[in-house]
Lab assay of single mutants.
Amino acid sequence: DVEPGKFYKGVVTRIEKYGASINLNEQVRGLLRPRDMISLRLENLNVGDEIIVQAIDVRPEKREIDFKYIP
Rank of each mutant, 00 (worst) to 15 (best):
K62H: 09
L24M: 04
R29D: 09
L32T: 02
K17R: 13
D49L: 05
V47Y: 03
G30L: 07
R59D: 10
A55D: 00
G30H: 03
N46T: 14
D57G: 15
I56V: 10
A55K: 01
L42D: 03
A20K: 01
Y8P: 01
Y69Q: 07
D66N: 10
L32A: 01
Y8K: 00
L32V: 03
I56Y: 10
I22T: 01
K17W: 15
Y69P: 03
L32D: 02
I70E: 09
I65N: 02
D66Y: 15
N25K: 05
Q54P: 00
V12P: 00
Q27M: 12
N25H: 08
G5M: 06
R41W: 11
F7M: 06
S21P: 01
K17A: 14
Y8W: 02
K9I: 11
L45S: 00
Q27H: 15
N44G: 09
V11L: 09
V47H: 01
L32H: 02
I22N: 01
D66R: 15
L40F: 04
M37C: 09
N23I: 13
G48R: 01
G5C: 13
T13E: 07
I15M: 03
A55C: 15
F7R: 05
A20H: 02
N25D: 09
R41G: 12
P60M: 09
K9V: 12
R41N: 12
Y8G: 00
E61M: 07
D1W: 15
I70Q: 08
N23G: 08
V47L: 09
N25W: 10
S21C: 15
E3T: 13
P34D: 07
I65M: 05
L24I: 14
N25G: 11
E64A: 06
D49G: 02
I52H: 05
R63M: 13
Y69D: 03
I70H: 08
E3R: 13
V47Q: 02
Q27K: 13
E43I: 07
E50H: 14
N46C: 14
I70F: 11
E3D: 06
E61Y: 06
P71R: 09
N44V: 08
R59N: 09
Y8H: 00
G10T: 01
I65G: 03
E43W: 09
S39F: 13
K62W: 08
L45D: 00
V12D: 00
I15L: 07
I22R: 00
G5E: 04
F67E: 04
L40I: 13
P71N: 07
P4D: 06
I15D: 00
R35A: 13
E3L: 13
I51G: 01
D49V: 05
F7I: 06
Q54N: 01
V2Y: 09
A20P: 02
E50P: 10
L45Q: 00
R63F: 13
T13C: 09
K17N: 12
L42K: 04
E26G: 12
Q27D: 12
D49F: 05
I15N: 00
R33K: 09
G10Y: 04
I56H: 05
D36H: 11
T13G: 05
Y69M: 06
I52Q: 03
A20I: 13
P4W: 07
R41I: 12
G10E: 01
E50V: 15
E64K: 06
N25F: 08
A20M: 05
G5K: 04
E3A: 10
F7W: 11
T13I: 09
F67C: 05
D49W: 07
P60C: 09
I15P: 00
Q27W: 15
Y69S: 03
I38N: 11
I56T: 07
P4Y: 08
F7S: 06
E26K: 12
I38F: 08
E64L: 11
K17F: 13
V58N: 07
S39N: 15
F7N: 04
G19Y: 13
E43M: 08
K62S: 13
T13Q: 05
L45H: 01
Y69H: 04
P34W: 11
G10D: 01
G19T: 05
F67R: 03
R59K: 08
K9M: 10
E64M: 10
L24T: 02
S39D: 15
M37R: 01
S21W: 15
G30S: 02
I22C: 03
N46G: 08
I52L: 10
I52R: 06
G10F: 08
K6D: 03
R41M: 12
P60F: 09
V2N: 02
K62F: 10
V2K: 02
E3Q: 14
R33N: 04
S39E: 14
Y69T: 03
L45P: 00
N23T: 15
L32N: 01
S21K: 10
S21T: 15
F67H: 03
N44M: 14
R35T: 11
D1Y: 13
I22P: 01
T13K: 04
I51W: 01
E64D: 06
D1K: 13
G30M: 04
G19V: 05
E3P: 15
F67S: 01
G5N: 07
R63W: 10
E61G: 13
A20F: 08
I22F: 03
L40Q: 05
V28M: 08
D57L: 12
I70A: 11
E16A: 12
Y8S: 00
I38Y: 09
I38K: 09
V2F: 10
G30N: 02
G10I: 06
I70K: 06
P60V: 11
K9D: 02
L24W: 04
E43A: 10
V47G: 01
L42F: 08
M37E: 04
V58S: 05
V11M: 08
V53N: 00
E26H: 13
E3M: 13
V28E: 05
N46V: 12
T13S: 10
A55N: 00
L32W: 02
Q54Y: 12
K6R: 13
D36C: 09
I15F: 02
F67P: 02
G10S: 02
L45T: 00
R59S: 07
V28D: 06
D66V: 12
E16D: 15
N44K: 06
I65W: 11
K62G: 09
M37G: 04
E61H: 11
V47F: 02
A55E: 01
V58T: 07
E43F: 07
N46K: 15
E26M: 12
K68V: 08
P71G: 13
L24Q: 01
I38R: 07
L31K: 05
R59L: 06
I65E: 02
R35K: 14
E16K: 08
K68G: 14
G48K: 00
D1L: 14
Q27G: 13
F7C: 14
P34L: 09
I15W: 02
P60L: 10
L45W: 01
I65T: 02
L42G: 04
I56S: 06
R33Q: 06
N44S: 13
R63K: 14
Y69W: 08
L42P: 05
D66P: 01
R33C: 07
Y18Q: 11
E26A: 14
V53H: 00
E43S: 11
N46M: 14
K62I: 09
Y8Q: 01
E16F: 14
V47R: 02
E61T: 09
L24A: 01
V12L: 02
N25I: 07
I22A: 01
K6A: 07
D66I: 14
D66M: 12
E16M: 14
L31N: 08
V11A: 01
V2C: 07
F7V: 05
N44Y: 11
V2I: 15
I65K: 03
F7A: 04
P71Q: 08
P34A: 11
I38C: 13
L31Y: 06
R33D: 05
R14S: 13
R41T: 15
V47N: 02
A20N: 01
